[in-house]
Each structure stands twice: as C-alpha cells, then as structure tokens.
Nucleic acid binder design. Structure first.
Lengths: 368, 368
DNA sequence: AAGGGCTGTGGAAACGTTTCCATCCGAATT
DNA sequence: AATTCGGATGGAAACGTTTCCACAGCCCTT
C-alpha cells in the first residue's frame, strides 16, 4: 500500500552476475509494488488494468528478465502447450521432412515439441503410453505406427488427442489420420507415361504388407484400366521398396526378353536401382525405357528421375494442425468424426520420363 | 483415522469409459485410505513405509492407471527432466543421426527431449532464449550454432547448462562442446592412400569458412608432411562441400593434364561428384584414381566409396551425456573447466580406395 | 442525494507434487 | 517400569502460476 514513488532499492539480483534463479511473478510484484494478480493480468494482456500499472509491470519484467515458469503455468492451466511426437524405431528417410513440417505448424501456434524415437519395436508402446498420461503433452502425433504395436486402444479412453501420420489403412475410420494421396499419385505417374505414348509398361511393386505400396499399386492399376490398356502389355514386378529389387527386376526382364518401354516404380529407391541396371545394360533412359518413381528423394533430383513428390512436410504440418484443432476443441471428440486428411502429391518431371515439354518446377517449399 | 477395512466404495471412475481426467495422488490416497505423503513415498521408492502400505498403494496406482503429473513434479522439484535441442534452420543431412544419438542417451537416463528447428537465421536466437529461461528444460543442446547468432553470451549468466555440438572452433575454451576428430580423420584417410603407394594426391577442400573443412584440410596436410611428400606432387583443389565442385574439379584437372592418382575429398558429396566425373571421363576407380571421402553418407555405401565415418550418433549421445552430467552437477560449473569432447572417426574401406585387404566393417551401430 | 454500474486492484484458493516436521506406536534398553 | 529410540504415518507448507471473488472508488443516472 505505502508505495514510495521511484524506489530503486537494491532488488534481488537485477541482472547480476551469478547464474541466479529465474525471476518470478513475486519478484516483479515486489519491484512494482503491485500484487501478483495485477502483474499476471498485465503479462497476459488481460483487460481491466490501468496504463500506469501496465507500464510499470512491463518495465520491471524486462529488467528482471522475467519469463513465466512453464511448469507452474501448465499446472494451473491444465495444459502444457506441448505436442508429443513419437517416431518408430525403423530408420526412415522421411522422418526429417515430416518433423520439419510439424515443427513449423507447432511453432506458428506457439507450441513446443517433445520428440522421442522408439529404441526398438517393443519400446514404441511404452513410449506412447508414457505420453498418453503424465500430463507432459496436450496431444500426440505418432508416425507410421507399426501395425502390431497398438498401445492405442479405444480413442474414447484417451485423455489427449492422438493423430496418426501414415498409419495403417484399417484404422482410418477409427483414428485421426493424416496421409498422402498414394493412389492418385501413382495414377498420375502412370497416366503421365501413357500420355507419352508408352504402352508396354512394367509396374514395380512395393512390399505387399506396406499400405503405401498397396495403395500405389492400386493407383497404377486404376490408371491402366481407365486408359483401357491391354493387361497383356503390362508386367507386374515384385519388389520390396529396396533398391536392389529394382535393379534385379530389370536384369530379370532382360534375361526373359520382356523389356518394357516404361517402368513405374512404387518408390524412388527401386526406380534408381532400375535406372542403374538399365545403364549397365546399355539401355538409354528415357529413350529406350522411361522411368518414374515415387517419393522425390534428394537423389531423384540428382539423377534426373521423374517422380511423384510425397508431401512430407505438408503431412507433418497438417498432423500438427489437426492435433492443435483437437486440443482446442477439448477432449470429447468421441469415436465418431475421425479426421482423415489426405495430402496431395505432385508430379515432378525431370528427364527420366522423357517429356521435353515438362520443366522441373522450382524446388521451393514455400507453403507448408 | 477411522479406516473401515476393505472399503470398496465406488471410487471415482476406477477405469471408467469417458476420457476422464487423469488420476492424482489424492485419488490413490482416497482409495487406499493412506495419506498422500505415504502414497508419494511408496511411488518414489522411498524408505520407511510398511510393506502393507506399499502393496496397497501399488495395487491402487495400477488400478487407477496413476502416473505422476509432470508439471506438478517439475514445479516442486525445480527440475523438469527435459533436455532442449535446437537445430539450425539450415538443411542438414546429419541432423537425424545426431538426434537419434541424443534420443538414445536421454532416454537411457529417463529424460525427455524438447526439439525445435529454427525457422530461419533470425529465429535461432529467439529459440535459444526461449529455452534458456522459462523452466521448460534443465539443459540445452545446440547444434551447429551459426557463428553470428550468439544469443549465447556468458556461460556464467545462464541458469541451465548449454552444450554445443559441432560449434565454432573459437568457442572451445569458452563453451562446453562436443565435436568430431576432423583432423585425425582426414589424416587417417590421406595416410591410408599413401600406404597404398599413391603419391600424386589431390586434396579437395571444403568451404573455407567452415570449421569442419578447415580442420579436415589441416589433417590432410599433417599426413602429407609426416610422410615427407613433395608438395609439388600435391594439388589443392578448391571446393565448397557441394557435389558439383567435386565434379568440376576433376573436369578441370583433366583439361590441364594434372590428373592425380588419388583424391581425398573433404566430404562424401564432393567425392561422389568426383567419382561421377571420373566415370564419365573413362577413368577407373580405384585403378586409375583412388578416391576417399569424409562423412559416410548412405550414398557412400551404395557407390563403394571409401570414406571416414563421422561419428554422428556418438556426438549426439555424448552431447546428451555431457548435458546430463552438467545438470546433475548443479548450476555453477563456472567459466572454467569447459568440456571439449572429441569423438573419434573411423576409416571405412570400400572399393574406391583400392585396397583389397581392407574389408568393410559391419554397418553396425552397436554402441553409441 | 442516493443508488447502481463500471474499473482497477488485492487476497486467496487452486493445480498436483514432494518433503519437512510432528506425532504415535511398539520394541529395546536401562 | 520408566525411558529412549526408530519406524511408520499424516498434516501442512512450498513450488509459481492463474483466476475467482470481494472491495473500494468513481461517474452517471434518476
């Protein structure tokens, strides 16, 4: 009450030397002579505070280097402003791009990321369970969850929202999910090859238990059917997403004399393997055989591989946006109304598809 | 006091349906009839609790799915068990490996990771400042901090320990740092080439303002000097770590007729560029020209490039260990006694160095 | 002139832990 | 049998916020 004006008393370590403890609301309160309630109101931009008080508090907070303690705030607000991100233990090239997208969206909303990689397959459920309770995060993003590890039971049991990125297809009605348009992307690629007059196609398949692979194969078939291509002209080659299966498939084809005039590989790794085999065998790309892949790995650019870009950053950013949306909507999102956001792919024409008209779009990442 | 034995009253949502709020210590206390103090003691494995109480509490905690609230615990313990990790905005292939290493060490110590990427160069200092105060993390790891963005002033001013990974050389005595043995690695690579009888060497340099590049070049020079190689036999080619500078350098060499019999490139990207140029020019690797790189990118394996493995996971893990060590030691680590941990590199012989004796070590990552 | 509605402010409770301190009890010591 | 000791337990404070509620002025209306 007795507020001596302009009291510049030796406040506790104004910006002193030692790594002193962080300033608290009480410190600001003492320095300004105002109550912690008022100080808190100013610092949170709440109404009903006089301009005088506002000025004093802001000045003192700046001097003291005040920053609200996250734990105390989380405790009373019942909200941490953190989002958890769980990665599978499997080494995955995409991971970085997805995380960059998540980071972008999270930071735009002023939230922070808690990131964890499963150390092994058994570790994943533990990790998820750890984030689901404990109040460490307000929402959880799980990448590429392994089919088996359903630490996730019933959506309605959970106290925080969970968003799956590139999760198993069968959980789509059951879980909030963000994925890419695998089918449309593959359709686009095959259609592109057909539009360039290629007719004797080979489809290099991915691992059959991988949902990306299955969907891409389906997209390729859809394009072939729509164009009315004779199935006798199409070869379906088995692969498993690894480079050597692309390489081997081409060598087998040359052995049996069944070389196509175009190859669509369900991912870039296999496409690059196929291109290497073609080069070794003296076949020219794209003159003799056109090749398209899927994913748009950095290496694709380097080798001029035309491909379908997997919108990884967009998927990451979208998953964060969905999580935030669910967090802000409050807990009871119920079992109904699951999100299933499908991020569009885009065709990237380089040299391997053999269309001179197409120019490579800028490698920008403007909006995600 | 009046504890009715075996009271199985309708506890608040034992494991009910709705996404009810998480169980608290008070819930467990009510269910067991014991005080929160005792419950807390049991759950933290503290002594001076009867076995009866221990059993009752553990059972109730399990039934209720109790997990301690992180914010409340952090508030009273003045410690979050979180470690912050800040990445520069620059796209960096290494980032993932480093993070995996950090994750491993952090999780082994039961800590969690808060990860953030700087959105752009100006963003980095903000990010660092945000983690330095606010009590969100107990320690901070900053990767590859940009020379300019010294949001980091004086070590002694900071309230939490900060560890730099691959930071600027000039801060080594000033800051806790974890880095790799660039000089020794480059020395090893050049020595290896010399041991195979190569004498007309070319050293493909990295960007001169990059400390990794400078150190690697110094290591190469050290090996040459020690072997007493005539400097007239050695060419120093300028590069900037990008693939095309390796490619161009080889083309220039062939134009001037100064083709060496071995090339050491300061990183794999340039080495791969050089190899591609050699292939195009009809020179055989390693027969005509041996090539070695540095980093051990995934692509190095694919192209049989012999190289020096950059111990990225180890650097990550070590940085986390240093951070944890500093956290546990308490704040006042003072300006003296800065850590400068140098993680050893290792020679990876594949086919491009031309030594049949060397076999490729397993691609394990056993211990990090 | 009295009442009512705003505005600015402070006190105090609450969030969920951990931990200090006091208390109580039974067993061991004198 | 009186005393001490140590183990088991509960009460309550503390951590740093936010926010509800009460209250004191003040201006405006009737």
């Amino acid at each position: 009450m007795a507020l001596a004006p302009s009291q510049l008393d030796a406040s506790p370590a104004a910006h002193g030397a030692s790594p002193s403890r962080a300033a608290t609301l009480t410190d600001v309160s003492r320095q300004t002579g105002l109550s912690v309630a008022t100080v808190s109101r100013v610092l949170n931009g709440r109404p009903n505070v006089s301009d005088t008080a506002r000025r004093k508090v802001n000045a003192a907070a700046k001097t003291l280097g005040y920053r609200a303690n996250a734990a105390a705030r989380a405790l009373v607000r019942q909200r941490t402003d953190n989002i958890g991100v769980v990665f599978p233990n499997i080494d995955n090239d995409f991971f970085r791009e997805v995380l960059v997208g998540i980071n972008h969206a999270a930071r735009q909303s002023g939230r922070h990321l808690m990131v964890a990689f499963a150390l092994d397959a058994e570790d994943e459920p533990d990790l998820i369970a750890e984030y689901l309770s404990g109040g460490r995060v307000d929402g959880l993003i799980v990448l590429n969850i392994r089919q088996s590890s359903d630490a996730l039971g019933d959506l309605t049991q959970e106290s925080i929202p969970v968003v799956l990125v590139a999760g198993p297809a069968e959980r789509r009605k059951d879980r909030h999910m963000v994925r890419m348009a695998n089918e449309q992307g593959a359709d686009d690629a095959v259609t592109h090859l057909l539009e360039h007059g290629r007719r004797r196609l080979a489809i290099l398949d991915g691992a059959p238990n991988n949902s990306d692979a299955v969907e891409r194969a389906a997209g390729a078939r859809r394009a072939l059917d729509r164009a009315g291509i004779d199935r006798g002209d199409v070869r379906f080659w088995e692969g498993n997403f690894f480079e050597d299966t692309g390489y081997d498939a081409v060598h087998r084809a040359v052995a049996t004399g069944e070389m196509p005039d175009a190859i669509f590989a369900a991912n870039d790794s296999m496409a690059l393997g196929a291109m290497q085999a073609l080069r070794e065998l003296g076949r020219r790309v794209p003159d003799d055989v056109a090749v398209m892949g899927f994913d748009d790995l950095p290496a694709a650019d380097h080798y001029g591989l035309s491909t379908v870009r997997a919108p990884l950053r967009e998927m990451g950013a979208e998953s964060a946006r969905v999580a935030i949306e669910l967090i802000e909507a409050g807990v009871p999102t119920g079992p109904l109304a699951c999100h299933d956001r499908v991020m569009p792919t885009s065709l990237i024409c380089r040299s391997s598809c053999g269309c001179p008209a197409c120019t490579r779009p800028p490698a920008s990442a403007a909006a995600y």
